[in-house]
């Protein structure tokens, strides 16, 4: 049985879905959770339900707010005495930023953004996309423990059955060390929606959107189904959308439950970034567009006609 520490990130009153996905997958091992923010009763309850034996809240100077150095120093201070075999985090904005630094502190191996993994006894073996998902590879870690792993949100899915842990709550102080790169301000994005990489549904627009203002019809559809709006590289390079919305090899790699591609032809670098979506709907006037080869449901038609009808139909049932 491996001893595993999972970083739980806060989301509203609860914890991020990816934290629960990881917990659901490592069941059967000795599992503890570490957090930087005081968990609500609801968060404690779900962490325990998904298998956390202990829930550690760590406190220290400068930890009220994320910083790569502060979080790294604090976690390394905490991990040092713990005899952990593995440290898991979601491949979230903070996870991707901080875990490499943390792995460097321990001179340890790290597997980035795995989409699946198994334990053979106590040995981790993961699967991860390479070349933005154009191929998959098996990833194994060696060298001194703990080993570090980030997991792509939405890839594992939540388990159908959970094995509860004790969920014992423990508070402790850690040394957050010297923080040189400090966040002075956080500028909120235009929307409060989930990040593309964590979104359950994505509505994406391509070059055929023709104009930045036309993304409004995608926003309306997104509001109806609770989606985040994305864009192809062609749309971003044409100035119709911000780069933070770009899906593909030079943007974000996503795996939502439902991906609705509107006016996207399906360049290889876009397909690489969204092909692991569970269900893909494509709307395009060109019946031969490559996007249709990846689509579960293709609609050959004008997105400016189809999307508003789709929005109305969905409103009827949601």
């Amino acid at each position: 049985m491996a001893k595993i520490l999972v970083l739980a990130e806060r989301a509203g009153d609860g914890v991020k879905n990816v934290t629960l996905e990881i917990l659901g997958k490592v069941t059967g091992h000795e599992v503890e959770v570490v957090m930087f923010h005081s968990p609500s009763d609801e968060a404690k309850k779900s962490l325990a339900e998904y298998g956390a034996g202990k829930i550690h809240l760590i406190k220290g100077g400068g930890l009220e707010q994320y910083s790569p150095e502060g979080y790294t120093n604090a976690l390394s201070d905490f991990i040092k005495g713990g005899n952990y075999d593995y440290f898991f985090s979601g491949a979230t904005s903070a996870g991707k930023d901080m875990v490499p630094r943390l792995a460097a502190v321990f001179d340890a191996g790290m597997a980035s953004e795995v989409t699946n993994f198994i334990f053979d006894g106590d040995n981790f073996s993961g699967t991860r996309p390479m070349f933005a998902g154009k191929c998959l590879a098996k990833v194994e870690l060696s060298g001194s423990k703990p080993h570090f792993i980030t997991v792509r949100p939405n890839a594992l899915g939540l388990p159908e059955q959970t094995t509860a842990g004790k969920g014992e709550f423990v508070e402790g102080s850690v040394n957050s060390g010297d923080i040189r790169a400090v966040i002075k301000e956080i500028i909120k994005g235009a929307s409060e929606k989930l990040d593309l990489t964590e979104a359950n549904i994505i509505v994406s627009g391509g070059r055929a959107m023709k104009d930045r203002a036309n993304f409004n019809i995608l926003e309306e559809l997104a509001d109806t189904v609770g989606a985040t709006v994305g864009a192809s590289r062609a749309a971003v390079d044409s100035g119709y959308a911000d780069h933070s919305m770009q899906v593909g090899q030079t943007g974000k790699t996503v795996s939502p439950t439902l991906y609705i591609a509107c006016g996207i032809s399906g360049a290889i670098q876009h397909l690489a970034g969204m092909r692991t979506s569970k269900v893909i709907v494509a709307i395009n006037t060109d019946a031969d567009a490559p996007i249709f080869t990846k689509a579960d449901y293709g609609i050959v038609g004008d997105l400016f006609k189809i999307v508003p009808i789709l929005n109305e139909e969905l409103k009827k049932i949601l």
Partner: peptide, 9 residues
């Protein structure tokens, strides 16, 4: 996340 920006000094 979600199009927000962290400003570092």
């Amino acid at each position: 996340e979600g199009g927000s920006k962290e400003v570092y000094e």
